[in-house]
Write a protein that binds this DNA or RNA. Structure first.
Lengths: 187, 187, 187, 187
DNA sequence: TATGAATGAGCGTTCATTCAT
DNA sequence: TATGAATGAACGCTCATTCAT
């Protein structure tokens, strides 16, 4: 039993190494990079990757899910103590994450029926948090009351896509988000 | 001479068929679709495609260039008689075009040094037109004077990406653009 | 009838242009060069080439046949007035011809059952002439009497292959042939 | 460690199978034969070939290099105890090897700048050995003193080409080499 | 269990040959 | 009849996935 435990720990460490390697490799060269490259970066054989992730798609989804989980958690925490900056900050985190081939953004903003259930649940959670933040801002009058959650989501999607495309640093990101929020704020 | 004309006409028709097929196939399945699929859709052999376009990349570029040429032309014409709606309309055309894998948007908004010169020139032309329209609006006070052309381009990029992702119809598109422009307009 | 004659003359001219183009193109880039390249060089369409030569192989054979015909003719003429230099001179012509991918040499020296009858006949004629010259030299004692025609042919083949490979000029060619003939001459 | 060894052994066996298959297939049908055919003959998938040899050219070069390495080694050993038969024997080995599309001969006799460094080095070594043998024979007066190494190389090239073309057996080979060497020997 | 060698379907591209003009 | 556009089989090569070790 202890032996099994040790093995599990080993496997777990490998899983993490693969995930880390995949994340950086995909971010750098796109998801079309061969699995072999990920294996090389992770310092494991391809077989090991396939043991943890039945196919390439699953690996990509796992990365997205992980990133999203982190994001959704942070967002929920931040939303627990809402203030006038909360929505902006959460939006900033989301846009900042927009790297790995837009996959994150894409998954954030739609039910995405072809995504694994786990991911869909997390995305739904994030959307719920965003909706909460939106409602709060509308209640305090800082965002136009005629906006719907999808308006916010689509704005975040556009910002994420642009962030990925232009490779925005923090300054550029803040400027862009501010500009977009100006529109949401209304007169 | 007439004989040559006839031949040309035939080849030209095939070129157009290929272009049309490629446009719809790429739009539907992405540019990673096999050339063979494009050929099948066009009702020609792969060799015919390669006769007209030395390689796949050139085919994609040709589509983007064509779309962009149309757009840049329309935009320039519209910009010749500028009024308070001109920028919005041009933006609407651009966002409406956003289909073929975001390539159009991507090319509109950056110098994209790896694109063929013809495309770069057209993109530059479109950017110039947009800058003109922006300046005009700023002069008439309908757009914040502290905005730079890149702010407009990035906004259009984000909108285009979202349009492609959500598959917006005209109504959704207008709403999104209005919202974004609200931000550009300022208080 | 006259009209037909004119047409024939036209066709004949095209045939020659194709043959000339093919000869120089094949010599320069090898027989693997696309037919299209030959057509371009000849200033005709590929269809014209295929009208004269049903397939690529036939075109190559036609060139070889033509070269060989010239060679066999020259050789026969020279052999009509045999002297102590005749064999050397004929050998020199043959080796000098060795360019187009060794095809000439290859065809010169074997029955080559997969070659067109016309070519085989000419090759046989050339071989006969060489045999005559060999016999004459043997009779006058300048070549070892124990040599058989195949010994001569194989020597010429080797020299031709080397000529093609090294791109010998006249000087190098003469030196090599002299050296080889020294061996044939015997003590 | 043992595990690694075993794996290596397996891969090594496949490498050899591929090399053997390629050698015989290329010898039989020429190097233009599809890689697929080599794979079929070796009883492996094409991917396996490409795992061992990045591209077709490398496979061909590997075969040539291997043959040449064997040859250069044998030659050097034989040249260490030179006697009046040494040069003839080495020449015989070289000519006997002349199969795989003349590539071997071609590489033996020229610097061949487009060949891999390893092959060039081995070819240079073989040439050096031949030069040594030539010099020795000249010193003992069995070969004309006015001959240069290139004369010998070109003779071997011609003999190899002929050997490949005619498919000489040992008897024919010996006769041809003797004949050629007669010329090198001089009066 | 981890490894990485093996597999083979699939892709981009070429080019001999055919055929509409 | 000459033209060159169209065809499509075939090739070199890649890479997701499987499997022997």
């Amino acid at each position: 039993m202890t032996g099994e435990r040790v093995l599990r720990a080993d496997a777990q460490r490998n899983r993490v190494r693969v995930l880390d390697a995949a994340e950086s490799v995909f971010a750098a060269y796109g998801v079309d990079v061969p699995i072999e490259e990920v294996a090389r970066t992770a310092g494991v054989g391809v077989g090991t990757i396939y043991r943890h992730f039945p196919n390439k798609r699953d690996l990509v989804d796992a990365i997205v899910t992980e990133r999203m989980r982190r994001l959704a958690g942070q967002a929920r925490t931040r939303a627990a103590q809402p203030d006038s900056l909360a929505l902006f900050e959460v939006a900033d985190w989301i846009v900042a994450e927009a790297t790995v081939k837009k996959h994150l953004g894409a998954t954030t903003s739609t039910p995405a029926s072809d995504k694994p259930p786990a991911l869909q649940a997390i995305a739904a959670d994030l959307r719920a948090t965003l909706t909460d933040l939106l409602t709060a801002e509308q209640r305090s009058g800082t965002i136009r009351s005629d906006l719907e959650p999808p308006d916010l989501l689509m704005t975040l999607y556009g910002l994420s896509a642009a962030a990925e495309h232009y490779g925005w640093d923090e300054t550029a990101r803040h400027r862009a988000i501010s500009l977009a929020f100006e529109g949401l704020r209304g007169r």
